[in-house]
Every structure is written in structure tokens, then in C-alpha cells.
Nucleic acid binder design. Structure first.
Lengths: 184, 184
DNA sequence: TACCTTTGTGAGTGATTACTCACTTTTATG
DNA sequence: CATAAAAGTGAGTAATCACTCACAAAGGTA
């Protein structure tokens, strides 16, 4: 692993654990085993370092979303969305913890807000289409509802991964949605 | 309003808007119209100021929760919980924005975590009882599910209060739960 | 080898910040 | 009124932090 990659990885871990504002660049350098100056040679500023982390994380996620055709039956598409969402959270737990932190830090948001918001809009749009295709009476609200639900479960899980029953919750939700209760 | 109250109110607004770490005590003092030293005379430290804000907010909320007997019919109790939750968010929007921020800032959490977590546990317990009384097949998961849902909707609303359809979502959820779909 | 570019260092710097303290003013109490 | 306690001030301080810079090492290319 190059020093640059080492910096990215160390900074991600520290930002996710301590928060952006509480993580000095000196600590990143120390734990990454490089000099502090190197961070600024590679990324220019602490803000730009965060932006690079977000961009890298999103691109990795986009990569693992390849092959998500969503061409299954309406019910199946929604179940698949739920399963994929939680799979992403499980696979990129640290990154999501950073994103959830960043969401509520205005100065941090400026860096990442546009990218994340675009992803969110895409997801809600896709969900709306699924619910519409499934004949839901109110696909828009249904999509916002599921989106909020997944976000809420994700946050509660990240709050306490060791104890939160994510597997059970995932099965619970998938069953709920495969009953057709939400297809009104 | 006393100077002490003025400090609390100003700090709440600034913490909620900018975040705790991004808000210097000098700014709080300036906007509250007092000297910086007075903050420390009254509260001792910036951390203690935050703790006082959280405690005040929670006590106000506990006060407005008085009279919430939850003695209605099972379905009614859940609908009432949903309505009351969003009413609280609407009435204490700034405070909730601070709480959502604090949730992801470890150093800030130490101050407020115990109190907030206790409230959360109480809510989940109460919801579980409601679902149990309603004959749900899995009251525990059902309670966690509704709790996450309300949290998710709250966060999305706080993200963009001007555009989020909170009224519609509230009616949507209440109708969903009065159908008995979740009573298995 | 000679030369250039990239990578890497670490001591230094100016700005910011939470907090202190000696002091003054106001308020309460006998 | 006298006195003490509480409220209030603002200049000062030590520490921290993001960032700079002069320089060195390493790597590629002719």
C-alpha cells in the first residue's frame, strides 16, 4: 500500500471514530506512519482529504452496485433493495459511519453534500418507480417512507453494531414488503 | 430573560446550526450580548454548557409529555405515539437538530449520551408493550422498526424542513398503522 | 553519470480557542 | 447604610491546530 493510500485509510478510520473536527492532521500522520507535511503535499488541505475519502468511498460503492439491474418483479425489486442496502452498510461500515457524521456537520457537508444528495435522489427516484410499478396508491410517500426506514435502521445499527439485530430486522422488513402490505 | 437564559438559548441555536466544535465560546458571548467570562462563571466549561442545554431541552420535553397516558386502544396508542413524536419535533426543531448532531460526536455524546439513551430505551419499551397488547407476532422487532422509522423521518425532515412533506408522512404512517397491518 | 521530477521530512508559524483572574458593578440582607 | 455575595467584565495565556517551507532522498530517463 502506498503512503497516499495509507493516509486515506487512516484518516477514514479516525474521522469515522472521532469525527472530522476532533481529528488533528498530526494524529493522522502519526498513525499512518508518515510526516504531517506529506498529507498536505498529496491533498492540499484537510478539507480536500475528506473530499477524497468521500469520493473514494462513493466510487467503491458505485462499483459494487454494478449489476444491480432491478429487473426482478416489483416485490422482488424492493426486497432486493433492502437486502443490498444493508449489505452495503455491512461491507462499508466505517465509511457509512463517516457519512452519517458528515450529514450533520455543515462545514463538512459543503465538501460532500452534492455527491451524497445526488445519490439519495437517485435512490428515492428508483424506489418510487418500483412502488409505482407495484401499483402502490402513493408511490412517492411509500418511497420516502422506505428510504427513511432504511436510514433509521442503519443509524441505529451503526450506533451499536454488536447488539443491534440487523439480520432479524432485514428479514422482518423483507417479509413485511413481500406480503404486499405496502402495495395498496 | 436573564443573561444565563440568554446564553443557553444562544448557544443552543449556534450549536444546532454550526455544530458544537465549530462554535467558539467567543461567538456565543458576542451574540448573547455578554462577556465571554460570564459563560464560564455560570457553566464552568463549554462541555458543561452543552450538558445544561441538553438537560433543559429534555426536561421541557418531559414536561410536554405529561398527560401522555397511552391508555387508548392499542392502535390508537401507536397512532398517538407517532403524532406526538412529530409534534415534539415540530415544537423543538432546533433542539432536535442539536440532538441529531450530538449523536455522532463521541466527545459530545459523553455529556449527553446517558440521558438520551435512557429516553430511547423507555420509548422502545413502551412501544414494545403497545405492540404486544395489540397481539403483534414480534412486538420487539415491530417496536425497533417503528422507532427507526420515526428517527429516519425526523432526520430527513430536519435536513430540509421547508420541503419535506412531514404532514403527509405523518398521516401516511398513522393510516398504515391503523390498518392493523403491523399487528400480525 | 548527470539531471529532473516526485516523494518525503520536520521544524516553524500565525491564527484560533477554551479558560483564568484580578477587578468592578449590581443585588440581596442585616 | 454597611457588608457580603453574586453577577459581570475583558485583557491575558497556554495550548492546539492547519498549513508552509527549505531541504533531502528516491526514482526515472538520457
Amino acid at each position: 500500500m502506498t503512503n497516499k493510500e495509507q493516509i486515506l485509510q487512516t484518516a477514514l478510520a479516525l474521522f469515522a471514530e472521532q469525527g472530522y473536527d476532533r481529528t488533528p492532521t498530526s494524529q493522522i500522520a502519526r498513525e499512518a506512519g508518515v510526516s504531517e507535511g506529506l498529507i498536505f503535499r498529496h491533498f492540499g488541505s484537510k478539507d480536500a482529504l475528506l473530499a477524497a475519502i468521500i469520493q473514494l468511498g462513493l466510487s467503491q460503492i458505485a462499483e459494487s452496485m454494478q449489476g444491480y439491474t432491478g429487473q426482478a418483479a416489483p416485490h422482488g425489486a424492493i426486497a432486493e433493495h433492502i437486502a443490498r442496502s444493508f449489505a452495503l452498510v455491512r461491507a462499508h461500515e466505517t465509511f457509512w459511519r463517516l457519512v452519517q457524521k458528515a450529514r450533520f456537520q455543515p462545514a463538512v457537508r459543503q465538501t460532500a453534500a452534492a455527491q451524497i444528495e445526488e445519490v439519495n435522489r437517485f435512490i428515492v427516484g428508483q424506489l418510487t418507480a418500483h412502488f409505482q410499478q407495484a401499483g402502490s396508491a402513493n408511490p412517492q410517500l411509500e418511497a420516502l417512507h422506505l428510504f427513511a426506514l432504511i436510514d433509521g435502521v442503519t443509524i441505529h445499527y451503526l450506533d451499536n453494531p454488536a447488539e443491534y439485530p440487523l439480520d432479524a430486522m432485514q428479514q422482518f422488513l423483507i417479509q413485511k414488503y413481500s406480503d404486499g402490505n405496502n402495495m395498496g
